[in-house]
Amino acid sequence: MSAVMGRRLPRLETGAAWLLALLWIAPLAYAIWAAIHPAALATHFDPFAPLTLDNFRKAWSFAPFAREFLNTTILVAMTLAAQLVLCTLAAYAFARFDFAGRDIAFALVLVQLMIMPEVLIVENYRTMARLGLVDTIVGIGLPYMASAFGIFLLRQTFKTIPRELEEAARVEGCSMLGVLWRVYVPLARPTYLAYALVSVSYHWNNFLWPLVITNSVDTRPLTVGLAIFGAPESGVDWAVISAGTLMAVSPLLVAFLLFQRQFMQSFMHAGIK
């Protein structure tokens, strides 16, 4: 995303680009507007309407947000940690070892790119019931821990690392896992960052599988809580729903605003490979 490249956009198109940008941010801006004004004024655009944090307070007490924040944080951290370890090992195997059945095994791994665990909710629910993992945070994360996407991404990166570096490390006396840890992992840092951002965003936002596998406040992540909270049946007024929704998305949103460039480059990096 270099700033030097590209010519100046013609004036008419600049206007159109701005207009579209305004239109695109409007729904979120409107939610913020509604959340910081008294509920009765949410639909009236009075620029001098009094500001309030009441809606946030109400939302916080109406739904178990604190617990759901904790659940989501545990889920995201645990899933990412397991993914990093499992995908690193598998990617190393695919990138640097010759073994019978490697290509078939790799093709079988790629199947998961198309068939994500949420497509197989019925059967995966059954498996979790057998394992006694229904309504646990481990149960939400487990199907995603061996990520085909992560394996694929890291394999591509490991393959670009010159073998001479590995030879040198071996001569120095590194073990097989030592080579992985000292040579491959440090050199793949940008890929790890990209994958981590994509994974965190995905699991922070994931909904269908967590909905199926959880049934109590102790395990329910934010998205599932938000669905209960925001459903029309809940009878909560719109200003409070806006406030609750904004609270739930704010960690990711703030992270995105702070590290915009890394986020976009990560999504780009992840999509192009």
């Binding site: 600049t14 579209l20 695109w24 936002n205 998205t223 938000l226």
Partner: peptide, 27 residues
């Protein structure tokens, strides 16, 4: 291309991507 406030425009376009679909539906 170069346009004034390019980073803001780009951010505005991309922001919906990082919201969960559930939150989007709520809004």
């Amino acid at each position: 291309d170069r346009l004034p406030a390019r980073a803001l425009v780009r951010m505005s376009y991309f922001t919906p991507t990082i919201l969960p679909m559930i939150a989007v539906a709520n809004l």
